[in-house]
Design a protein around this nucleic acid. Sequence first.
DNA 1: CGGCTTTGACCCGCGC
DNA 2: GCGCGGGTCAAAGCCG
Length: 289
Amino acid sequence: MEMANSVEYSSLLLEQIPSSYAGIFDMWSDCEKGSLAFMDLLGLHDYDSSLHDFQSPEQLPVISPPQPLSTTTSTLHETSEVLSLPATPNSSSISSSWADQHTNDEQAINVVARQDKEHQKSKKQLKPQKKNQKKQKDIRFAFITKSEVDHLEDGYRWRKYGQKAVKNSPFPRSYYRCTYTTCGVKKRVERSHDDPTLVVTTYEGQHTHVNPVMPRGNSSGLQSSCSNYYPSNTIYDMKLSYFQSLQPPLNFGSNYVHERGFVTSHAASTLEDHGLLQDMVPSSKQVKE
DNA sequence: CGGCTTTGACCCGCGC
DNA sequence: GCGCGGGTCAAAGCCG
């Protein structure tokens, strides 16, 4: 029943993903409405009992990374440029920089979305507070990244607060919390035991603040709509960018796209000068639209 | 010294 | 009721 809906929903969204979409692997629903769907990846292993109820990884459409994303360090640095990272990404306050972390890594993979009905049967509820928080809007999404580093830089600052061994997996799961005082966003990071090169990152909650790392110039629409908690680049960006391509209501100008260093399939068709971005843009042949 | 990671202990839900 | 597994806490240690 519920599950059926979830699957449907997932399929629906998946269909909208350009197979060549550069690096975006999940979707974020309208943040304004607070109707965010819960995005999860499936089938990696028992990574979350609430996540693996619909497909095996083999069944998932794999989104091929754009060609230029090679595994070399240089390319990855290039990538970081493409993503318009801050000039000083290696801020000591950040657990690790994009460049550092992406040494040798590649881009990600695929995604499946679904509503997280189950998350409510959530875990620990030490305080009523938490209980409520959980029940309210547990925005959650996940994505798989092919990377040698576990903790991918997403522009926010995270503090690790736990690590647990995962059943049936040699790889532990790490728990991070956003360091911003009033922000309760968490994220879990773990490796797939099926394919150790895959890293599953699950975000939980919404940031209630601006990206501390990248107070980038206000680029329009997104600010107003997804406002303060959108990160400046990388994964969140990709996510948002992708979502933009699906749902135009947000004012997502080409400037923004360009500046952000990420081009959705939608935007790509309208942009002429991508510069390095071209590396991230799927060739027209690949774009299914 | 502040911020972060590590890690064992603890809590809780769930299945048997 | 008990054991297991997942999630969190918090003290201790590390590091710049």
